[in-house]
Design a protein around this nucleic acid. Sequence first.
DNA 1: CTGAAAGCGCTTACAG
DNA 2: CTGAAAGCGCTTACAG
Lengths: 359, 359
Amino acid sequence: MADVAREAGVSVASVSRVLNGHPARPGTADRIRKAAAELGYLPDLAARSLKMRRTEQVSLVVDDLGNPAYIDMMRGVERVLRDAGYRLQISAIGSDADLGTSTALHTVSRGYADGLIICPLRINAELVQVLEASPIPVVVIGTLPRGARLDNVTVDSSSGVRLALEHLHGLGRRRVAFLGGPVDTNPGTRRLAGFRTAARALGLPGDPELESVTDAWTYEAALTAFDRLLGRTDFDALLAANDVLAIAAMHTLHRRGRRVPQDVAVVGVDDSEVTAFSTPTLTSVALGAQRRGAMAARLLLRRLADPEAPLRRLREVPRLQVRESTTGSAEPVGAGHPTAQPSTAAADPHAGPAEQEHR
Amino acid sequence: MADVAREAGVSVASVSRVLNGHPARPGTADRIRKAAAELGYLPDLAARSLKMRRTEQVSLVVDDLGNPAYIDMMRGVERVLRDAGYRLQISAIGSDADLGTSTALHTVSRGYADGLIICPLRINAELVQVLEASPIPVVVIGTLPRGARLDNVTVDSSSGVRLALEHLHGLGRRRVAFLGGPVDTNPGTRRLAGFRTAARALGLPGDPELESVTDAWTYEAALTAFDRLLGRTDFDALLAANDVLAIAAMHTLHRRGRRVPQDVAVVGVDDSEVTAFSTPTLTSVALGAQRRGAMAARLLLRRLADPEAPLRRLREVPRLQVRESTTGSAEPVGAGHPTAQPSTAAADPHAGPAEQEHR
DNA sequence: CTGAAAGCGCTTACAG
DNA sequence: CTGAAAGCGCTTACAG
């Protein structure tokens, strides 16, 4: 910047002003812009944000971008934030809890981002403590321990799982198996618990043989866990803890000559884009990832505008999106084109009846 | 930091030293750490990187994280960079070319990241100019205009398309249709051109009716473009410009009662995770997204270590991954478990014969 | 081992 | 409209 000032024969103050669009005499402005262009001057963002005390940037931390639900969530966050003039930075931290905490620690320092939205697969006390101590606003997507003093977006996944089970029950299925995610993750435990509760409520058999959990949220891991299930017991329906696991199961069923949905009806969770990728298309519990992302972004914007605002928790209400893997029909029960991208079709992040506010 | 110093009764210099692990008298160090913990002190990263002239952070800019190939690419970048002690920040810029340039402009400023890896769908002269003028090292993944002075990773997608066509030709297919991506994107044009060249080389009919292009790299857009193709002409094979488009086409074929591969053999491009999601599984041209990501990261690391190193271009060589959508068999022709995650199974980002160096 | 001081590259009242 | 100067929060020679 000093070079530009020298080249243009002005002070650095003028360079700063002109380059930031403040008024200046046309001749001066021209000289400065010309000099800046000639020298290929680009501002130093660290210096600027040190002085300005803001970065105009928000950080989104997720565990694994490989899960399409996170992509939807990111889209929701991005849209709201971009409209508000913030850029979005994404950190994918793998699913290492320690790494999560250290990434969080880094992010919540000042000077790196003005705010943080984090959606951790694992939430421990240490992480909560770090987030609560953050000098920049933080919004957590996911269920927090009681009493955590953080803005928060949740989804009642238990009721989502219940919707799925009621749907299967209504179709006459009585032996419903559960293909769960890793139980050392937050959604893994919660969806399993939700399955057990809902199964009991419906009077379905509480047979532990009907449950199998993966050790990762991946297609590969699902194949293994589902093989255990198949080798062990019989069932006429399967609820998988997310869409990718469900698709892996459907593939195995197809290879074994079991028909979906005639022999086994299959339901996934997340209602992500991949529900359209399988044959038959996949019935799934929509947890409103994109909407949750947008809700979290709006919560963050509010907190940025008013650091003293009371804590707030927003809760997304799940919906069931019925497709061929349970009904066999190409026509969906609800509205919408059967082959439309579900996440896009279903989610207007800016409004909707499924959003509930808490406290 | 001044607060911590006061609380601990030392100077800010000592606080800085202790918190950065430099030697200090144990008593002093303890007092400082205690004070920092009590006050919930977190360093200001803008100040630190202004002083240090480095952020220990690298930025990856991609157009659309919805495309699974980018996820693979990100994994490749992330692994190499993390091992080298850098954190990875991702910016998804949608596919807006202007936005791309302005994001790039922002990123290549100093103080935000130490280096940039960018994989743009559209590359124009303005973008190249901005990148060339960057004060921080830049690596571009994608084909650059001749003479661009930038470290670069490319893939010979034409030869990939040729592999696919030769495979289809070898299976006796003579009317091969092409479902292309948007022609205003770099890969969109290049893959279409590659198709035409390879078709001519094989003596296949150069019938324009066999070509249809989408206006977006999405499942939805593919349905529309593929309907045009179906309504217009007959074919016994389809090459789609990426996996998602291929899966959309397979779905339509399935709905119309056309068998894959018996009636129409289908090949995608990218060999992404979704190739396992469809029934039948999808034969696909692997463009080594994860490997390209890793190559780009290594190029960046090299440039970071030696700003004066000569420019370098690395070229990834495509491979064909044969699956059920062309052979009908559940057994792949090559090695590997048929249901394994292709991207993980196929790619060791750290080595391999498919990598070629140029100039 | 520790403190006082300079300086990283910006922005912005404050004068003129 | 423009310049001189202070200061954002760090780190690090330089003394002691």
